[in-house]
Design a protein around this nucleic acid. Sequence first.
RNA 1: GCUGACGUAGCUCAACUGGUAGAGCAUCGGAUUUGUAAUCCGAAGGUUGUGGGUUCGAGUCCCACCGUCAGCUCCA
Length: 648
Amino acid sequence: MSQHTISVRLPDDSRAELPAGSTAADLARSIGPGLARAAIAARVDGELRDLDRPLGEGDRVEIVTRADDDPDALYALRHSAAHVLATAVRELHPDAGIGFGPPIEEGFYYDFDVPVPFTPEDLERIEAKMAEVVEADYPFERREVDRKEAEELFGDDPLKLERLAEIPADETISAYRDGPFVDLCRGPHVPTTGEVRHFKLLNAAGAYWRGDERRQMLQRIYGTAFYSEAALDAHLVRLEEARRRDHRRLGQELDLFSIQEDIGPGLICWHPRGARVQLELRRWIEALLDKRGYDFVYTPHVSSEALFDRSGHLQAYAENMYPSMRGEGEKEAYRVKPMNCPAHTLIYAARQRSYRDLPLRLSEIANVYRFERSGTLHGLLRVRMLTMDDGHIFCTPEQVEDEIFTALDLVDEVMNTLGLEYRLDLATRPEKRIGEAAVWDHAEASLRQALDRLGVAYGLDEGGGAFYGPKIDIKFRDAIGREWQGATIQLDFNLPDRFDLEYIGPDNQPHRPVMIHRAIFGTLERFTGVLIEHFAGAFPVWLAPEQIRVLPITDGHAEGAREIVRRLRSAGLRAELDARSDTLSYRIRDGEVMKVPYLLVVGDRELEAGTVAVRAHGAERKQVTLAVEDFMAAAQEKVRRKALNPAL
RNA sequence: GCUGACGUAGCUCAACUGGUAGAGCAUCGGAUUUGUAAUCCGAAGGUUGUGGGUUCGAGUCCCACCGUCAGCUCCA
């Protein structure tokens, strides 16, 4: 190996010899002109780098090319798009302060300190200016600077100086220039602004500097960018699809629920159709819990404030609790419950427990009230009255693994039934915690064993547990790929201590039980909201508020149709008659718009033959004619199996 | 909570620089009796979110309050 050449390793484990000082761009050129043209960055020993940075002896190098399915490629592109945005904003508002401008999961944003917030028209102007910056095809030039130089470079921008001061002394400080704009930036970037051809600014809103509401508010502009127009279009279509599925919109169109100003924000009124969905979900989870040995309890909606003092909620959770109330002339203050755990803990403590009683599994599907800040309320997803499918398991340390396994198995059944893919994350002990190391060791090991036993892959969130115990979070994906926080299974070493819980072991000595909090749906409100979006309002038959609508063709068929409705109802199916004098087409359209799984058309032919012409929502074959008996059996089977697709 | 935008009939939206509120759908009545995604005619429906103010005159301008929407570190 001479001094004048270096050898780097390629992804296929072959080696390439290059002159010393060669860059990743040189490497791409040496491999082929096609690769050189497609290259936008490089992964060097796993780290994303600019194309024009020199390679070192023995580096493992992978050329990153323009690709809308490579997260690293998108990262560099969107990071660069953020700079293009800042370049444009600085052109239009030379005095704008520059905050952070990172790539994010679906795009990028940049925060600006400007005296007047951006309007939608501003965004259009900025977009046009960005197009000019892209057209100019400025190279992104990286420069390493020392601290003094950096302080001079960004001397007029207090936000940058603040960030600069936090960079450790031993870290390289780099600045990137594209045309007129220089930014303090870690990089990497695509080679030139010309790469950022397919972008779109999406919205602007205030955002606190560093997310701290005590600090100044900046104006944040969100956008997204892709390498191909097709990918950008697909993304915009996905956003449109998300709007189409918005549960707030569907909730109104399908007459599921409303939020009334006269009642208050964050408080849901379930209309009959929405309440039906809730009821079916509730009955389902109750049956699943019954099978798994849960006991059902009911506890009061208000309780003595002292209870929440003892549980610690008053100290740790007060800002999410409604204020205390006191009856006229009474001494005792009361609180509306934000959680069920303290009451369940008292039920455990209501008598002496033996190890033979454990595990004790308490379930309460209960309304709790939480004072959420007004700006955070959002449809069914963040509300002030919520219905938890709450459960608390009290068990011995030895039983933890089994109990976690059972809970995970329950999650698995729920997710599979609804056709939701999910993933699990184990969150382990944080820095600040209570409880002894041995207790944590045992608990974390039990969670791991339960996860292994289930045989699923899971992520690890080191240090992500609560101060009172480790947990497993379940995240699931809906039909258009969005991820939601679902069930949580949480160990708690704190409440058993605070309430001095005990059980008598086989050694005739008192021991402290372990407490497990778990919710499968989380809250019925949020879960229903997500399901509305997941199914786009077209619920599977078993959940659909109205499962069947019978449409007589003329008044002459109404009596026969009514009889069919009677039979369906006595078979336990939710059927309605639509004998309005509108045309059949109109009534079909109405049934389709309301996403009723089965529309049954009944005319002379059907009444004579004892059949129905079935139109199943979303089915490819628009119409199937079946004997009433056969349709009834098929529909019941769909309900029994909780089938996702109504097609017969 | 904070910043910004918005709030007109049950729903979706219209009403030039301030001149006295209109359409489609839904609702109701009538006609129509329909074979697979909107039949026709008619009627009714609003203290323009609430409360103040400016003005001869306010949906429109100003103030306060209520609510909705977007966002509020996925760190140079």
